[in-house]
Structure formats: C-alpha cells, structure tokens
Design a protein around this nucleic acid. Structure first.
Length: 111
DNA sequence: AACGTGACAAGGC
DNA sequence: AGCCTTGCCACGT
C-alpha cells in the first residue's frame, strides 16, 4: 500500500491512535476530531488502511460510531480485531461494544 | 478529468 | 430498528 511520506495528515492521525490507552476504544469520528479533521472519519479509516505493519499501531482500538468493528463479520480481519480487543478486557455484547463504558475520554488521566 | 471505492457518520423515513 | 442518502477525502483506473 502506497502512501504519502511527505504529508503530515496520516502522522497526525497515527499520533492520536497511538495514544489510545490499552483497554479503551475510540471511534473513527473521534480520532478525526482529535487529529484536527472534524467530520472526516473516512480519512481515518483510509489512514489506518495505509498503516505499515511495522508501525505496531493499536489500530484495533478504533471502531465505528455504533460500537461495532468496521469489517464484515466474514472477513478474517474482523476476528483478529475482536480477539485483540477481548484480550484487552473489552466486552462484546451482540458483537457490539458499549461505548459508554469503553470509549476513551482524552480528558481523563492517561496512564 | 471523471468516476468509483473505501476499516465513516449523521440524518431522514 | 433497519435501510437509504448525502457529505467527506485520498487514491487508482
């Protein structure tokens, strides 16, 4: 996957994703706002898609606004992401995450 | 240059 | 509660 190394756009998004604490999640829209791109949730999805594996970004902590994983359930990536989240103690109910409980609030103390 | 697609989201019905 | 439409932006054809 090609990407623009000369742009700071992805880097700003990556920086936010990197700061999502273990055991918490953030939505694409939320990351977009925090990165300074309000209303551009799709850009976050695209940035994550273009993320090099070596970066070891906690991409799995980003989910959609409905508290769901944004992969089709039959996609292998869906199961990978769900597994990673469950290993962090995040609980799924009907394949959904309760954002009221697990959403990251940047305001509160970050470990 | 136009058009379609994608790890989105909000609003209308 | 679902499904559809529109707004978004970066890319590949």
């Amino acid at each position: 996957m090609k990407m623009r190394n000369d742009s700071t756009t992805y880097q700003r998004i990556w920086k936010i994703v990197q700061s999502i604490p273990h055991g918490r999640v953030a939505t694409y829209g939320q990351v977009a706002v925090l990165a300074g791109f309000p209303g551009q949730a799709r850009l976050v999805g695209y940035a994550l898609h273009a993320t090099p594996e070596e970066m070891k970004l906690p991409w799995h902590r980003v989910i959609n606004s409905r508290g769901e994983i944004s992969f089709p359930p039959d996609d292998h990536r869906y199961h990978i992401q769900k597994k990673l989240l469950e290993l962090e103690g995040i609980i799924f109910q009907n394949n959904k995450i309760d954002l009221k409980i697990f959403r990251w609030n940047p305001g509160e103390k970050i470990p």
